[in-house]
């Protein structure tokens, strides 16, 4: 029996951590970029909203639910041809980002929709009464009012993405999850498993407290 931590190659751990952070940063960026407009669209066309579109909303809703109900591990594999088209590789950080974005965007969009629904309808009415266009209502009233909720949604999504990046390790994405599977699980190197899990835990803690702080900072109620 080797002494504890003897299997640890700190350079490998460091590189894997960087990979995880890059996957997280990149996928979070694209998730917000795509999910925010999608969430706004869901909100606007939703029941009893400004642009209520029953058929369109039902269709969009169905698509979002379908993507969300697909287990991420399946999505990872199904997405491989598409990922190859987008990034040219299905491996490494670049190969992981498309499935991560595809998995997290519908989830994030739903959270954005919920955050927007929390905005007092009276505020939308008051902004309409000022003669605001739809774009102005979204940019000047809806999004600023929903900001704490949207920040909370980004936090939850980021944490979900952390666990998704770990899963992406299965299909050769690299990162801490990959390390945990290949060394910790397949080679029975418990210490590697423990270190990677602790690092992921720390990452989640940092994300959550950062998010909470921002929510408090932007809450004016």
């Amino acid at each position: 029996m080797n002494p504890f931590l003897s299997n640890i190659d700190w350079y490998d751990i460091w590189m894997a951590t960087l990979d995880t952070l890059m996957m997280l940063g990149g996928s979070l960026f694209f998730t917000v970029l795509l999910g925010l407009p999608l969430g706004v669209l869901l909100f606007l066309t939703g029941p009893k909203q400004m642009y209520e579109q029953k058929g369109f909303y039902a269709l969009l809703s169905l698509a979002v639910n379908a993507l969300r109900s697909l287990p991420f591990i399946i999505l990872l594999i199904v997405m491989i041809p598409l990922t190859l088209m987008i990034t040219g590789t299905s491996l490494g950080v670049a190969g992981a980002i498309p499935p991560l974005v595809a998995g997290a965007t519908p989830f994030f969009a739903r959270l954005v929709e919920t955050a927007l629904r929390e905005v007092d309808k009276g505020i939308i009415e008051a902004t309409q009464a000022m003669g605001a266009s739809t774009q102005q209502i979204i940019l000047n009233a809806l999004l600023p009012e929903a900001r704490p909720g949207i920040i909370a949604a980004i936090t939850v999504t980021a944490i979900t993405l952390v666990s998704y990046t770990a899963m992406a390790g299965v299909v050769g994405a690299g990162g801490l999850g990959d390390l945990a599977i290949r060394y910790g699980y397949q080679r029975f190197q418990t210490d590697v498993m423990v270190v990677t899990v602790v690092l992921l835990l720390v990452l989640v803690q940092i994300l959550q407290s950062l998010g909470d702080r921002l929510v408090v900072h932007y809450s004016r109620k």
């Binding site: 007092d120 009276g122 505020i123 009415e125 008051a126 009464a129 009233a141 600023p144 009012e145 900001r147 932007y218 004016r220 109620k221």
Partner: peptide
């Protein structure tokens, strides 16, 4: 226009 619940932007 003014409103019963003021409808000011809290942000």
């Amino acid at each position: 226009m003014i409103f019963q619940h003021f409808n000011l932007l809290s942000s």
